[in-house]
């Protein structure tokens, strides 16, 4: 009996507390940049696709919801298609952690509910943004040894010019 009265009293007191409910979607909560929601593919500082289709994100994904196919343009690897099935994604962020190029990033945009499951299947066109995302500076090909358009052998960071193999000096 006493407990029932106490419960009623406490509930009554809540009438005078500040409301916790926000008027979503008019009011939106703050989401830290590191929040793990909708995944994007970013571009490097030169504006080219960052993803080199190394397949590491796909390999690490615990629910196997990333699929892609490598293709190549003058030495530069990029995905021919890149597909994430968000109806399976658990937003664990492992893909971002595995990515050696900072291409794949999770963003704070959590608003991705759909009535139709097929609409949760995102292709590269849906994933690729025009900027660098959370990592403004990194450019994989500036540190890698492959020659790509605009960066020949020996032009990456901390590289000597190519060896003259017909030279006799050691």
């Amino acid at each position: 009996m006493l407990s029932n009265v106490r419960t009623l009293w406490l509930t009554f007191l809540h009438l005078f507390h500040r409301s916790e409910t926000v008027g979503y979607p008019e009011t939106k909560p703050y989401m830290a940049p590191r929040y793990r929601a909708r995944i994007i593919l970013s571009r490097d500082p030169d504006g080219a696709e960052r993803c080199v289709s190394c397949n590491l994100c796909a390999a690490v994904c615990p629910v196997d919801c990333i699929s892609l196919q490598k293709t190549e343009d003058q030495g530069r690897w990029y995905p021919e298609y890149f597909r994430i099935n968000f109806s399976r994604c658990i937003f664990c962020g492992l893909c971002e952690e595995a990515c050696p190029t900072y291409a794949i990033q999770l963003t704070p945009d959590y608003e991705m509910s759909e009535y139709e499951r097929p609409n949760l299947v995102y292709e590269k066109e849906d994933l690729l943004i025009s900027g660098t995302g959370k990592y403004p500076d990194y450019n994989f090909y500036r540190v890698a040894g492959m020659a790509v358009p605009g960066k020949d052998k020996g032009e990456a960071e901390r590289e000597d010019p190519p060896v003259d193999i017909h030279g006799l000096l050691p």
Partner: peptide, 15 residues
Amino acid sequence: HRFSGRTAIHANVSV
């Protein structure tokens, strides 16, 4: 054991 992409590879055809 590390085969990837099982739930995405044909998701464009059927989810």
